[in-house]
Design a protein around this nucleic acid. Structure first.
Lengths: 146, 146
DNA sequence: ATTGACCTTCCCATTGTGGGAAGGTGCAAG
DNA sequence: CTTGCACCTTCCCACAATGGGAAGGTCAAT
């Protein structure tokens, strides 16, 4: 089947299929006489695997690892789980961060009149100079705080 | 003060300060005789505003709008709140998506032995070959995160 | 004068995706 | 056969936001 068909069936755009091929994430598709890429059910299944893995938020690099493991009959599930756990920890950390932001924003939105007046706790808070710690400037020599 | 000092005090890297200037997010800094950018407390305060707004996850475009509103004494808080609400809705939606992914991953990680054996529900789920006519899989995954 | 820490501009890379141009192919209708 | 349209191909550009680093100027202390 043609690439647009494979795209439709896998949920991966034709553009992305070509891109995945170009970066070596997936193997180069067979070509027909006319140079068109040709896909079969196996390839579509692989593309679906990629799409689902991407949907879970794995990076393309992680997708590559998972693809390799998927294809390897003698893999150890340990490695797969390790990858998934790492990603999970990452996601949970990001969720925590975003929830903190969400709480703050909710509070601010609540506190803001939202009318014609200019007073706005949201802007006040964003401007809020943090705890004024007097910065000791002994020299103009700046250590790059890394 | 020099750019690296302004960077240190605002929490925005020198690189980013120059970039923000180049895209017109902030006004071009005054220059000294030698061509060095020169910053005062006002500029640092503005940079801090930008950083905090970025920390809340607003895009640079949104930061630009908020900066304009911040500077405008005759703004209406309505517009600020509208922006914040829109961003908040966005964040909450993304949190919901990520929580769904998190739940799925937790379940899969749990179900996976994580030992030397190759059997792995994680990969099975990612592969989730379209309903094989015979075997009815009761895995009902939630999707999906885009 | 040398040294080292600054500063400047400019270009490149990242991640993952889409847009679009320029040109080849395949198939149906006129 | 020709026209037209829907495909396909490759190649380059753009995005958001940030960092890396080169090449070269400047300043201050030795």
């Amino acid at each position: 089947m043609n690439i647009s068909m494979a795209a439709e069936q896998s949920g991966v755009s034709a553009k992305m299929i070509r891109y995945y091929e170009s970066i070596g994430l997936i193997e180069a598709a067979d070509r027909r006489e006319n140079g068109y890429r040709d896909y079969g059910d196996t390839e579509v299944a692989m593309l679906q695997f990629v799409r689902r893995t991407r949907d879970m938020g794995f990076s393309l690099e992680e997708v590559a690892s998972l693809l390799t493991l998927w294809r390897n009959r003698r893999r150890s599930s340990r490695e797969v789980r390790r990858l998934a756990e790492k990603h999970l920890a990452n996601i949970d950390a990001r969720i925590a961060d975003m929830r903190a932001v969400s709480r703050t924003l909710k509070r601010l939105v609540h506190a803001c009149h939202g009318d014609d007046r200019p007073e706005c706790p949201i802007l006040d808070d964003l401007a809020a100079s943090k705890p004024k710690i007097e910065v000791a400037r002994r020299t103009n020599r700046t250590k790059t705080v890394k």
